[in-house]
Design a protein around this nucleic acid. Structure first.
Length: 770
DNA sequence: GGGTTGCCCGTTTTT
DNA sequence: CGGGCAACCC
């Protein structure tokens, strides 16, 4: 739950840390640590990078370190910032911390990057010309918005995919770039040109909606800090210690944010594993971890290599595989105990086709279940979601209880989004996006024509769609049904004053006829949808206000799986990161599927290495047993495709694997070029010296603003005194109003006389200097 | 304004 | 093969 930040910290004076001496003699929780972990906990002052291999106890280090800082009175709980990527990780940490230090755990600023971002933004929203109740757009809201923008510009959205445009914009945001900061040379293709041209409009539109998107939750705090050094200082002073989980997955924006916050005390501890960086396609910059020392020259580095999870054979297989990667800091996983049983070798098995593969896996699972291995200790991992269907069928046939993870997220389901939109409308009837979502759901006879009339009126009167209904030129049934829709929402708003959240929700969904919509439908999914809404009511019980709930729902994508039942899981390799199982089945190890063709086509060697890291993640999920499988023939999109075993299979050291059945290596064509022999790989030859970061990893077109340019540029920007007056007289360009001259400047608010003669107040960030 | 057909496309997706 | 979506028709 998102109850992370509720405690207001007491306003007490802070004693300088050096003045406090160790008041706590024995910290019992330290005895469980191995020497490296202990070192990571005790090295509190100055930047520290903890390279933490899979299964080496990084969460333990993070939580213990936090507890240590508090118990040693180096800082108050509320002076510590601990960030994670997922809510799950944040909750886990909070729970463990509470066990160690009790309720003080709840005063630590502990949450996801995005939750921290939202918290900061809400507090200072007005400085960014937002109000503190801004909405966080969901992924589909974002897409609809960008689609509207493209359509308005007469772009054929069939030819130019809005999702791609949005993605390009997101990547810019991931790199901390505002519209005016994106280099025009990034218009490398037609589609990126479109993104370039739409980015500013997109931001303007968000702004009018009093909304932000996910990227903004990181980007806007940076803007806030850049433009308000006093605000930045407040946070810098507060956060004496910063801890970061999964550092290999941070993007540039997150890096910048951390850097800003850590600038005063420099006590930043980042924990991560470069070998598990699998989200570069989402904007993660593995460079953040690879060049930590470059950013923080006085940084300490500690390697955690003692693996508490897997057997020696599994570790050997994983280490052997990942050693084929060039771009890594280098780390070798060792079993904790050399004398322990080395366990079973990794099983490698090939099949004629995908169905046989699935059948075999399910059979094995059934067998091991009979031998006493619980299903919940078993995972089937796939590269792509379409593979899950096969296992679904096979498992159902066998009657084995299973759960497919991923794909359909609770809060992304149509019915849940609809229900949430109703709630949003009750919370704030000016929420135009919510209005649009539900105004004709169930059907109220409100079509495009009526909506156009309403939005026309809204534009004229400068009011929300909701308020515009009253004035809009509507007649007949549309008039009637819209009026009663408005009335119903108002009624619900009243009810919300006194009723509980589930009651309010039930009221609006029943009275609006929304539930009926699904009750009448006879499709097999309809029942599921109703169940989901019932489940939503359950979730709502945990919240006091719509606002609290919306905040939660907009930042959390899945219901934290309750899963007490003994069922096995089928999921993607990506989704498996951070989890562990006794037995793991790694399926579909075939060329083009894994490594995936697209990864190779789009990102070449970097792509291949990321795929290999994915394989490494998969292998290291297992405690005792791993089976790697592949099929020679696979049904894809209706036709049969044949495939070669994955090159990754060849990269597994022979001494750690056992090849069984038809899965002979003879399947590998003898004449296949050794295109994955790393010695023959085409690599940047002039980069033999220097950090890992300098090697081939960062071959980018020189014009592109790499993370580096921005990293170097940033501190200056922040410490620059505000250049209020200097903007006077500057020639600027605005996305919509065209070019003009700055005639008055008041902080970031500028008065611009546009060439059309119009004078407008515009925020500097919406302008581009020309 | 709403239902139906036919066409396109098909990796991964922490928030 | 099958879902999603836009053009198309009633």
């Amino acid at each position: 739950m998102m109850d992370v930040f509720e405690i207001e910290e007491p306003n007490e004076t802070i004693t300088a840390p050096e003045k406090i001496e160790q008041t706590v003699e024995r910290l019992p929780f330290l005895v469980d640590l191995n020497p490296e972990q202990l070192q990571a906990v005790e090295h509190t002052e100055g930047p520290l990078l903890v390279l933490s291999g899979a299964g080496t106890g990084k969460t333990r280090v993070l939580t213990t370190r936090t507890a240590y800082i508090i118990e040693k009175h180096l800082a108050k709980p509320y002076q510590i910032l601990a960030v994670t990527f997922t809510n799950k990780a944040a909750n886990e940490m909070k729970l463990r911390l509470e066990k160690m230090i009790g309720s003080a755990a709840f005063s630590v600023w502990l949450g996801t990057f995005h939750a921290i971002g939202v918290k900061i933004l809400r507090k200072h929203a007005e400085k960014l010309n937002l109000t503190s109740d801004f909405t966080v757009l969901s992924a589909d809201d974002q897409e609809r918005l960008i689609k509207n923008i493209l359509t308005e510009r007469g772009i054929d959205v069939k030819k130019y995919d809005p999702a791609t445009v949005l993605e390009i914009i997101q990547r810019w945001k991931d790199r901390g770039l505002l519209p005016q900061e994106v280099d025009f040379r990034e218009k490398k293709s037609q589609i990126s040109g479109l993104a370039f041209d739409s980015y500013q409009t997109y931001q303007n539109r968000l702004h009018t909606l009093n909304a932000v998107d996910f990227g903004d939750l990181l980007l806007l705090p940076i803007v806030l800090f850049r433009e308000n050094p006093d605000v930045l200082e407040e946070y810098q002073t507060r956060f004496r210690y910063i801890l970061v989980d999964e550092y290999q997955d941070t993007n540039v924006a997150q890096y910048l944010l951390l850097r800003l916050l850590a600038q005063k005390w420099h006590n930043i501890c980042c924990v991560g594993d470069d070998d598990q960086s699998i989200y570069s396609w989402r904007g993660a910059e593995v460079g953040n971890i690879l060049s930590f020392q470059k950013f923080y020259p006085d940084a300490g580095i500690i390697r955690l290599e003692r693996n508490y999870r897997s057997t020696a054979h599994i570790l050997g297989a994983a280490s052997g595989l990942i050693s084929h990667n060039e771009s890594r800091l280098g780390k070798t996983l060792r079993p904790v105990d050399d004398t322990a049983d080395v366990g079973q070798k990794v099983t490698v098995k090939g099949f004629w086709n995908d169905m046989q593969e699935a059948d075999w896996v399910c059979e094995q699972i059934e067998l091991s279940q009979k031998r006493g291995i619980s299903l919940s200790q078993t995972a089937v991992l796939v590269r792509a979601t379409f593979q899950t269907r096969l296992f679904e069928d096979a498992l159902r046939k066998k009657g084995l209880p299973y759960k497919i993870i991923g794909g359909f997220k609770f809060y992304e389901r149509e019915e849940i989004k609809d229900a949430v939109a109703y709630l949003r409308l009750i919370l704030n009837s000016n929420d135009d996006l919510a209005f649009l979502r539900v105004v004709n759901k169930p059907k109220r006879g409100v079509g495009a024509k009526a909506l156009e009339a309403v939005s026309e009126t809204a534009r004229e009167k400068k009011v929300s769609l909701f308020d515009a209904v009253a004035w809009a030129p509507l007649k007949g049934t549309v008039r009637q049904s819209l009026d009663s829709f408005i009335y119903l929402i108002k009624l619900a708003q009243e009810k919300a004053q006194t009723a509980t959240l589930p009651e309010t929700a039930r009221f609006i969904l029943e009275e609006s006829g929304y539930m009926q919509l699904w009750q009448q439908e006879k499709s097999p999914e309809a029942d599921g949808r109703i169940e989901n809404i019932e489940e939503l009511y359950n979730v709502l019980h945990d919240y006091d206000t719509i606002r609290d709930f919306i905040e939660y729902a907009s930042l959390v994508s899945d219901t934290d799986e309750t899963g007490d039942e003994d069922q096995l899981v089928v999921m993607t390799l990506h989704a498996s990161k951070g989890l562990e199982f006794q037995n793991v089945y790694l399926t579909g190890w075939e060329e083009e599927l894994f490594p995936h063709k697209k990864a190779l086509d789009e990102s070449g060697t970097d792509g291949l290495e990321e795929e290999r890291r994915l394989a490494y993640v998969g292998l290291t999920r297992a405690k005792e047993y791993v089976a790697v499988t592949y099929a020679n023939n696979r049904r894809m999109y209706g036709h049969w495709v044949n495939a070669l075993p994955s090159r990754f299979i060849e990269e597994l050291p022979p001494e750690h694997i056992v090849i069984t059945g038809t899965g002979s290596r003879a399947f590998l064509p003898a004449d296949r070029p050794n295109y994955f022999d790393r010695r023959t790989r085409d690599f940047d030859s002039d980069a033999d010296e220097g950090s890992v970061f300098d090697k081939g990893q960062w071959k980018r077109e020189t014009f592109q603003k790499t993370a580096y340019d921005f990293y170097d540029r940033l501190p200056m920007k922040v410490y620059q005194t505000k250049e209020t007056g200097s903007r006077l007289g500057k020639r600027v360009r605005h996305e919509i109003f065209g070019s003009g001259t700055v005639i008055h400047a008041e902080g970031e608010r500028l008065d611009v006389r546009f060439d059309s003669g119009e004078i407008k107040k515009i925020m500097a960030r919406f302008l581009e200097e020309i």
